[in-house]
């Protein structure tokens, strides 16, 4: 056991840090995917994570709500360490508690096909938060209206377009009234003409002050909505800074090469 505990606290890790990753490492078999990532998400902050395919962005954001179990390092929610179990345990909070407060939206939507749009959104609040059906429906309708899909409340997921599905998925995450949202390539599975409607919803959330970590390939969108942009490559954070610095005037060589492909 080492005596000295190295605390790698990212610059913005203040008292109002919502979610923090410290020294996250993860391998799949022999392949190291994450080699020690530190990232803190302050209240109201929007952080975009960009980088080439296979750089570990998605694995990292999945570690942030423990859908992927890190081999090393820790996740902290509001300063409290998240344990390996579902339930809270003394000083550690459980994964269940973490996920109740930190929502996630997936690349492939993952709506529940056996539930209507409204039921998809009320599932979490009723089953996990214990809200009454009536209460949950009122809240759900609010969020469905926010994403412009109030009229689809009784539709089945299979009847929606990709963009509509993703907006329902966002409403489903919001209905839990989370402290932070994790967005994992939420437009990558969409037809190009449907990307705009989803980004519009995310942009509005950013304007409303929602704390978000966004893994994305939409560089100009990232530059526009983020307070901070993180460039990942080869399982490490290779560059990090305000969007202007990272996306418009990159100094890092690999980052330049990466961005050049988008501007071609």
């Amino acid at each position: 056991m080492k005596e000295k505990k190295v605390m790698s606290v990212a610059p913005s890790a203040a008292a109002d840090t919502i979610l923090e990753a410290r020294g996250i490492a993860k391998s799949f078999g022999q392949l190291p995917v994450l080699k020690g990532i530190d990232l803190a998400l302050g209240a109201g902050e929007v952080v975009s994570i960009i980088g080439p395919s296979g750089s570990g962005k998605s694995t990292f954001i999945r570690c942030m709500n423990m859908l992927e179990r890190p081999d090393a390092g820790e996740i902290r929610f509001r300063g409290r360490r998240v344990g390996a179990r579902f339930a809270d345990n003394g000083a550690e909070i459980g994964q269940g508690t973490l996920r109740r407060h930190v929502g996630m939206v997936f690349q492939h939507f993952n709506l529940f096909p056996h539930r209507t749009v409204l039921q998809n959104v009320t599932e979490g609040p009723t089953v996990v938060l214990g809200q009454s059906q009536k209460e949950a429906e009122a809240v759900a309708m609010d969020y469905l209206a926010q994403v412009g899909l109030a009229d689809k409340r009784d539709a089945w997921p299979a009847q929606l377009s990709g963009g509509q599905k993703q907006r329902v998925a966002i409403a489903r995450a919001l209905a839990m009234q989370p402290d932070a949202l994790l967005l994992d390539e939420v437009t990558s599975a969409l037809d190009p003409e449907l990307v705009g409607e989803v980004l519009g919803v995310v942009r509005r959330l950013a304007d409303q002050g929602m704390t978000m970590a966004i893994v994305t390939h939409e560089i100009s969108f990232a530059a526009e909505v983020s307070d901070r942009v993180v460039f990942m490559e080869g399982g490490v954070i290779a560059a990090e800074g305000p969007p202007q610095e990272i996306c418009r005037e990159p100094k890092h060589e690999r980052l330049k090469a990466f961005l050049a492909r988008f501007n071609a």
Binding site: N65, L67, F86, Q95, G96, T97, R99, R100, G103, M104, F106, H108, N110, L111, F112, P113, H114, E123, G124, V127, V128, L129, A169, R172, A173, M176
Partner: peptide, 26 residues
């Protein structure tokens, strides 16, 4: 699909809730 269990987990459902409400009905 694994994404179904993950979507349930992401809204804080326990393994038993995911099995009973999401996986088994489908």
């Amino acid at each position: 699909a694994k994404g179904q269990s993950e979507a349930g987990a992401a809204i804080g459902m326990s393994k038993a809730q995911i099995m009973r409400r999401i996986v088994l009905p489908q």
